[in-house]
């Protein structure tokens, strides 16, 4: 997927502001190119280990993406202390096979790592990211 550097920096700022809790958000775009990042609260009961975008935010952002003529390009969350790879829970709860799942690791605070995946039927396929 294509990710404008400005959006990457918005994700990084959101993840750092939420650490040590996991952060999350949605990305609207067109044809695999991200156009806008929508940071959301994390409604999980255990935000140190889980993310769960609150229903009210899912509805609000879904409508904003649609109003903007965009598609749901990606679902973003951060792993503050572990690597940027889908956990078993991430895989089990992945209901959007056509979206990219973006995971930003802050395990090494000086060297954040962002990776993109497609997750479908329990299978994880890493996808290249072009930051431009």
């Amino acid at each position: 997927m294509e990710l404008p550097r400005r959006i990457y920096e918005e994700m990084l700022n959101h993840a750092r502001a939420c650490a040590p809790e996991e952060s999350c958000g949605l990305v609207g775009g067109r044809a695999g190119r991200a156009e806008r990042f929508f940071p959301t609260p994390n409604g999980a009961e255990d935000p140190l280990r889980r993310y769960d975008i609150p229903p009210v935010d899912l509805l609000r952002v879904t409508r904003e993406i649609e109003r903007g003529g965009m598609e749901l390009t990606a679902i973003f969350h951060s792993h503050p202390a572990t690597e940027a790879y889908p956990s078993a829970t991430d895989i089990r709860l992945a209901y959007y096979p056509e979206a990219f799942y973006l995971i930003l690791s802050l395990a090494d605070p000086e060297r954040p790592v962002l990776r993109a995946f497609r997750i479908a039927d329990g299978r994880v396929d890493e996808q290249p990211i072009a930051i431009c």
Binding site: S87, V113, R115, E126
Partner: peptide
């Protein structure tokens, strides 16, 4: 009426793929 599947996950990973994936390390 809007139908919207959850967006949730998290937790430590338990699976590892063989080989070096094409991850992007951003300074």
């Amino acid at each position: 009426v809007s139908l919207i599947p959850a967006m949730a996950g998290g937790g430590r990973r338990t699976e590892r793929r063989a080989g070096r994936p094409p991850w992007l390390n951003i300074m």
